[in-house]
Structures are given as structure tokens and as C-alpha cells.
Design a protein around this nucleic acid. Structure first.
Length: 422
RNA sequence: GGAGACUUGGCCGAGCGGCUUAAGGCGCACGAUUGCUAAUCGUGUGUGGGGCAACCUACCAUGGGUUCAAAUCCCAUAGUCUCCGCCA
């Protein structure tokens, strides 16, 4: 959500933003609704003032004066109720519209229609050349007893899977390594609720719009999180933080659930696109300062890059173009890791910067040095998501004999195991 | 799951339907004073909305309702606590 005053003062920028983000929204209509909101508010305030004044007078009136005065008061009161009704409808519409307004993009964000126009800003690592026919993670996993997709489908349907033996341990090792990694970089780690209320989904910007992608617990009005960004960023909602608390750095390990509606037939191979996965996520909350946001954004990116480098996984970083960005994002990097079986890069990380978009929705504020209330800035990035990360990890480190070499940093988390063999 | 009690500003805590657009205290900020990291006194101190401003207005868990008028009465919901039951 943005400040309506900002929207009014930057109408053409806002219209441009809708266009380049492919969001069908009428800024002029919003402003008209806001005009009505203001005029209703003024009318309502005035009637209320009359009522308050009239009420003060009642006690000092004589018995003869009272009936006439009361009749007049009734009249004003019913008028104020009418206005109040109109105001309620107007507020509802206003709020609904405000929730749809996109954030303008930061300077330097490329304009483009979809992910094909994202701009690569960096690559790291050499794309592996195998002296043999490399296997896919599915073949490797099956051969090494690490996964069972067929039975996952049998039990839960498409896009579900079982991990087994070293597959399970490797995933847990990655999660634990990731938490240690972030703790060393100043993050407070958390285990979070996996079921959240609408306020958290809306507050982080997933609703409205993303309802189809979330599993809903109908009886309880709760939603399974698709990322722990949701509970983490919501953690301080409705609170007023102190500047000494910044930067707030939270990391969590969680399971994540996504319906993947509308992706039928897409990425059906293996562990790339599934309904349930585990992730260690980074979230930062800081002051309302664009420069600090940009710094934090680079910090989050670097954490993920360093992590991938330590796992010896080649990757590219892309600056996501306007059309591929979400409604609230101001700037976004994707990290795509090399996946031999796809013969290309596949998205493994998404690093988002929001300015105050989420903080406004979450009512997440702080008092600045002058004592003024301000909305915070929020950012987030993946540190690692599994089993997707297992794709490059298994495929890149496979050997001719069909085993998988374990990167040195993970070995301590695998009781010193250096290689997964059949 | 059953029964009951409670929910007021950063905190504590008053509050017979109109003199409360919330007393008082604590805390906090600023100032004064005092021979000194304390005491005393004074002033100020919530969050939104409208307005250049003075100012007006809303907010006493949340949402409805009654009334000319609601923190105060009624209904519903949520949360906290206590007791009972069930259970890992």
C-alpha cells in the first residue's frame, strides 16, 4: 500500500507504473473515490460537531424549549447516519482499491513485459562439462535411494514426493547449515507458524490476488504459508519499533506450501515445481530510507550468493524487469542456479525490496530521531529452498560412478560424509 | 469441549447514559530550582482523518444495535485468565 497523498501528487508516475507492471488499475478513478472520501469526511465531521454542540446545550434547556431542540437534533442525527452509511461504502471501495495500487519501481529497474526481459547482471562459476552422460536429479535420486516421486503422487497427488535416506538427511543438513550461516551474519532465527490469518497474507501483499496459490483451511480461516516471509514480516505488525532495533534481521526455517494453480503441465519433471518444500528465508526490517533499503537489498543478495558459492553451485543473478515484478516490489533480483538436467538456469532465489509497501499494510512503524511516526521498510530473500536446490546440488556434484560428492561446508552436517554412494 | 471472570492511553488505574472529545498516578520530554547520576516545582506528553493554520473530528478489545447523546445499556465475535473434562 502507498500513501494516498503520494499517489495524488504523482498521478502520471502511478499511471506509468500500472502500465509497465501490467496491472490493470485506474488511478484517476481512485483519486475520484478519494475526493468523495474527503468530502464525506468533511460533511460528517461538521454534522458531528453540531451534534456535540447540541448535546452540550440540552441540559441547560427549559422544559418548553426541549421538544423543539430534540426534534432538531433528531434531524441532524439521521442526516449524519446517512452520511455515515455512504462513508462506509466509500471507505470499503477506497480500501479495496488502495490494496491494488502497485509500488513504483526503483531507479534502474528495466522495463519489460515478462521474465524473458529480465537483465542478467552477473554470473558466477563454471558451467560443468561432464566427461560422461550426466544423470538428472531424479535418476540420481532413484538410483541412490534418495527420493520416491511415484509414491508421493500415489499418496498425495501430482507434485508431491518423498525424500528418503540421504535425501532426507541432505535436506536437513542444508537447512541447518543455512540457519548457522545466517546466525553468523546477525540474524535472529525463528521457527514460525505455518498457518496464518488473512491479515498476514494481505499485509505482506500476497492477498488480494494470490488467493489461488494458497491452501486454505476453510473451517478455521487460516492459510498455509507459501513462504515464511509472511509470518516473519508480519511479526511486528501493529507495533512501533525503536530505531535502536534496526536493522531487524530475521531468518526462519519453515515448510512452505503452494497450490501452483494454473501451472498444469509446466515443469512436471522431478523436484522443480512441487506443492510442499522447505526454505530458510531472510527478512530485514529497517528505517524508511531508500538508500538503506538498497544497501540491505545488496546484503541479502550477497548472503545468498555466498551460500551458493560455498555449495559450489554456478548461478546467474538477474535484475527482474517491471512486468515480472509483483505489485508491491520496488526492485527484485532473482538468482538462477545452473541445473544440468534443464540445460539452463532455474530460479532458486528471489530477493525483493518493498520500501514501505508491506509496512503500510502491516501497520509496521517506528519513531524516528525527531519522534515522528514513520512506516518501516521491509525486504526479503531466500537463503535456500529445498528440494529445488537439490537439483543443482545433486546434478552438479555427481560423479561418473553415479555417486554425489558433498560440498565441504555440508560435510559437518552429514557426520563427515563426503560422498553419497549406492 | 463445558463453566465463570476480565479486556480503558507507553504502563498502572478511575469512570451513576449528558459536567469525560477519559480523572489521578507512573513513566517520558523540556524548563526552573537546589553545592553535586537524587529531591522538589512547573509545563508538556496517544494514534488516525480533514484544514495553510487556529481548529474540527474519530478512536476506551473488534463488529453491530438502542438513543437527540454510549467507555457507560443490548447483541455477536475475538483475546486473556481461572476451574472442570479430554489429549500428545
Amino acid at each position: 500500500m502507498l500513501d494516498i497523498r503520494y499517489i495524488r501528487e504523482n498521478q502520471s508516475l502511478m499511471e506509468h507504473t500500472c502500465k509497465i507492471k501490467n496491472i490493470n488499475f485506474d488511478i484517476a478513478e481512485l483519486i475520484a473515490v478519494d475526493d468523495e472520501r474527503k468530502s464525506l469526511q468533511t460533511k460528517f465531521d461538521d454534522l458531528k460537531r453540531q451534534i456535540n454542540e447540541g448535546n452540550q446545550k440540552i441540559r441547560s434547556l427549559s422544559a418548553e424549549e426541549k421538544p423543539a431542540h430534540l426534534a432538531q437534533m433528531k434531524e441532524i442525527s439521521s442526516r449524519s447516519k446517512e452520511i455515515e452509511d455512504k462513508q462506509r461504502q466509500n471507505q470499503e471501495l477506497f480500501h479495496k482499491m488502495m490494496m491494488q495500487v502497485p509500488s513504483p519501481v526503483a531507479e534502474g529497474v528495466p522495463v519489460g513485459k515478462d521474465d524473458s526481459e529480465n537483465v542478467r547482471v552477473k554470473t558466477w562459476g563454471d558451467i560443468p562439462k561432464f566427461g560422461f552422460a550426466p544423470k538428472s536429479h531424479v535418476d540420481l535420486g532413484n538410483a541412490l535411494g534418495m527420493l520416491d516421486i511415484e509414491r508421493g503422487v500415489k499418496i498425495s497427488g501430482s507434485r508431491f514426493y518423498f525424500l528418503k535416506n540421504m535425501g532426507t538427511l541432505l535436506e536437513i543438513a542444508l537447512m541447518r547449515y543455512a540457519l548457522d550461516f545466517l546466525m553468523k551474519r546477525g540474524f535472529t532465527i525463528m521457527t514460525v507458524p505455518l498457518l496464518v490469518k488473512d491479515l498476514a497474507m494481505s499485509g505482506t501483499g500476497y492477498f488480494p490476488g494470490g488467493e489461488e496459490q494458497a491452501y486454505k483451511m476453510a473451517k478455521d480461516d487460516l492459510f498455509l504459508i507459501g513462504t515464511s516471509e509472511v509470518p516473519l514480516a508480519s511479526y511486528h505488525c501493529d507495533e512501533v519499533l525503536k530505531t535502536e532495533q534496526f536493522p531487524v534481521r530475521y531468518a526462519s526455517w519453515s515448510h512452505c506450501f503452494r497450490r501452483e494453480a494454473g501451472t498444469y503441465g509446466k515443469d512436471t519433471q522431478g523436484l522443480y515445481r512441487i506443492h510442499q518444500f522447505q526454505k530458510v528465508e531472510q527478512v530485514i526490517v529497517i528505517e524508511n530510507d531508500e538508500r538503506k533499503s538498497l544497501e540491505a537489498h545488496e546484503f541479502l543478495l550477497k548472503n545468498a550468493e555466498d551460500f551458493l558459492q560455498s555449495l559450489e553451485i554456478p548461478y546467474e543473478v538477474t535484475l527482474v524487469c517491471s512486468g515480472d515484478m509483483g505489485q508491491g516490489q520496488v526492485k527484485k533480483y532473482d538468482i538462477n542456479s545452473w541445473m544440468p538436467s534443464r540445460n539452463g538456469y532455474g530460479e532458486t532465489h528471489s530477493c525483493s525490496m518493498f520500501y514501505e509497501f508491506q509496512a503500510r499494510r502491516l501497520n509496521l512503524r517506528y519513531r524516528d530521531a525527531e519522534g515522528k511516526m514513520k512506516f518501516c521498510h521491509t525486504l526479503n530473500n531466500t537463503l535456500v529452498a529445498s528440494p529445488r536446490i537439490l537439483i543443482p546440488l545433486m546434478e552438479i556434484h555427481q560423479t561418473e560412478s553415479g555417486s554425489i560428492r558433498i560440498p565441504a561446508v555440508l560435510q559437518p552436517y552429514m557426520e563427515g560424509l563426503k560422498e553419497i554412494q549406492s
